[in-house]
């Protein structure tokens, strides 16, 4: 196998609720795979299982052919898996620059150097600034993250993710709650990341985005995979149309 990520019969139960039900994913390196499904289908939970926030009830997760089931999130992150969150998840009372700088610093092993000066690692700051440019936040370096507009917070999240230089990126609804005008800029950033050869697994609701940039689409319903294939195949699948797309404009 040379999948960068595999899940094998991944299952998690919350009390009586089977939130993720026997999900087996195969993500090939350098591809763009989307996960779609109605609200509550278990998409975010699946991501939480993959990146170690939840422990599965059964099943396994393999990343770069290594069994990572049960590893804590920080270990998985350091192996090269980055994650952005559906609900904005940043360091609110730190500056925009510091948010990204911390993400850059996380990849160097200087975190335990408590008598060095953070400001003497200028390369981290330079890199953080460059990334802020890439995601369209230049000029906002010194703004506190919590006063950013919602769209800018989403951009900041993507910037933090980029800064970790992860090989596999899990994006959980990167455009959630964004105003219509902000969406194209974020899609642009995602396309550019895709072009750099990174592997991306993304949850989204906006079908036009998914159909335009995915190589593979996986459809979840009530925790289980009900369809998988190219965007065209999935869009044409009658089961998917009735279960999910029925109510949505494609």
């Amino acid at each position: 196998m040379d999948d960068i990520l595999q899940t094998r019969d991944l299952t998690v139960r919350f009390g009586g609720l089977l939130a993720v039900d026997n999900v087996s994913l195969h993500v090939r390196p350098g591809t763009f795979q989307s996960v779609i499904g109605p609200n509550g289908a278990g998409k975010t939970t699946l991501f939480n299982l993959i990146c170690g926030i939840y422990k599965p009830t059964s099943g396994r997760v393999l990343f770069k052919e290594r069994d990572i089931t049960g590893l804590p999130p920080h270990r998985i992150s350091r192996l090269g898996m980055g994650r952005s969150f559906q609900i904005t998840n940043i360091f609110p009372n730190l500056t925009v620059l510091e948010n990204v700088r911390l993400a850059v610093q996380s990849r160097a092993s200087v975190g335990y150097r408590f008598l060095a000066l953070a400001s003497s690692f200028g390369e981290f700051t330079d890199k953080a600034r460059a990334i802020l440019g890439q995601v369209g936040l230049e000029g906002k370096e010194q703004t506190l993250a919590n006063v950013l507009a919602h769209g800018d917070k989403r951009k900041l999240e993507i910037g933090m993710l980029l800064a970790t230089e992860s090989e596999l990126l899990l994006l959980d609804e990167p455009t959630a709650g964004m105003s219509h005008d902000d969406v194209p800029a974020v899609i642009d950033v995602i396309k550019r990341i895709k072009a750099t050869g990174k592997t991306i697994l993304m949850v989204e609701h906006k079908m036009e985005i998914i159909l335009a940039i995915s190589d593979t689409v996986t459809v979840l319903r009530q925790g289980a995979v009900i369809a998988e294939g190219t965007p065209a195949e999935v869009a044409a699948d009658p089961l998917v149309r009735s279960a999910y797309l029925g109510g949505m404009a494609v």
């Binding site: 920080h74 360091f91 609110p92 993400a103 970790t164």
Partner: peptide
Amino acid sequence: ENEHRAQALGYDV
């Protein structure tokens, strides 16, 4: 500021 985010960045909180 945000323990979970720090952990997701790879810091051993």
